[in-house]
Simulated scan of single mutants.
Amino acid sequence: MTVIRTDDYGRVARERLPADVWDFIEGGSGDELTLAANAAAFRRARLRPRVMVDVSTVDTTRTLLGSRLATPIGIAPTAYHQLVHPDGEVATAAGADRAGALFVVAMFASRTLKDIAAASAAPLWLQLYWLRRRDAIADLAERAADAGFAALVLTADAPRLGRRLRDVRNGFAVDGRVRAVNLDAALMAASHDRRAGASALAAHAAQTFDPSLTWADLAWLRERSALPVLIKGILTGEDAAAAVAHGAAGIIVSNHGGRQLDGAIAALDALPEVVDAVAGACPVLFDGAVRGGRDALVALALGADAVLVGRPPLWALAAGGADGVADLLTGLTDELAHDMALAGRPTLADVDRRLIWGHS
């Protein structure tokens, strides 16, 4: 198959991956209403292009928390990359490096932070869940700083795991040969316990995630790490304002790819409200069904400083390793630059709500 667009990587990956791994990657929670809504929100967006603008040069570079990036399109945190490729997150990092893109590494990465960092000179951030074992959080944050990671990303929308019915039907558990190597094996044991009609990941989350997390806990993490802390999983202006008030260095508008509260608002529909509430106090990033350069352009126009893609890098990793990831990110950036030119917006500073019909 000739790979031309993002979905082509998905078709290749589906042919290569075990069915339960594919469902783990692709599935949402409940009836997958929010999963569908994320994509539908982009299909509704209509653009207002300007003409007679000099677009002989189009600039996609972006500076984010002091790091210069070749593209505003980065990689969202997803767990266990070795489920789809033996090199795992090391290959993903190498691909991001070639594209000059941000990579947000998951807490449940299957390669060590040190090895991942060695594969990329591009910025790396580390995503964290709030565990009952606070010592594990503090230790991981310290090791991330030592490895050269530039920020921490606290996922706030997972006091418990969403009911992901594909995983339940498959009795999904993480292959014992693939492990979250940056955490104690005992802490992760339940994620490998396969039982018919149950998700091992949900059982693990019930054991290890701390549902008592509140805004007051953010101070605890900020006191223990000099790294800036972003909050991921915000969908309302109220929570955006609270994040700013409690010292968050950035916000990621996200509904966890439709994998948490089913029926939650599409991430794109939530974006303008959050951007307005933040009012420039910190960067606002976005994830949720970005599948092409046009999608990225729409999210950027609605106020995102950068966009993250989650499932597509796993598809590209399965299809072509580090080269696949690099080609995916480069292709998405080329699509973005192409659409910026056709829209008459030669720089990211020119991309604003006036581009979106109904928001001008």
Rank of each mutant, 00 (worst) to 15 (best):
A138S: 03
L69T: 11
A118L: 11
A343K: 05
W130E: 03
V284F: 00
A173F: 11
V90P: 05
A106K: 03
P312L: 04
R46K: 09
V51K: 07
K232F: 02
R179N: 11
D31E: 15
G331F: 08
T214Y: 01
R353Y: 09
A173W: 13
L297T: 05
D269W: 03
V307R: 02
R111L: 06
R311G: 04
A267E: 10
L317R: 06
Q207V: 08
A79I: 10
L33Y: 05
W220Y: 04
A306F: 01
R195V: 14
I4V: 14
M340C: 10
Q127V: 10
L227T: 07
R224P: 07
V153L: 14
V253I: 03
V51P: 00
G288W: 05
V309M: 02
L64P: 13
A299P: 07
G320W: 00
G280E: 05
D193V: 14
L201C: 09
A318W: 01
A248W: 03
V325D: 03
R353E: 07
A180E: 09
G88C: 09
T330Y: 00
R259M: 01
A37S: 12
M340R: 07
A289S: 15
R353S: 12
I252D: 00
S67N: 15
H359T: 07
V351Y: 13
L300I: 04
V153N: 02
S191T: 11
A45H: 04
M52R: 12
I252T: 09
D334I: 02
L201W: 04
V174F: 09
I25Q: 10
A145H: 11
N170H: 15
L227N: 07
T2R: 14
A304E: 04
A70E: 13
S120I: 09
A202Q: 15
A173I: 13
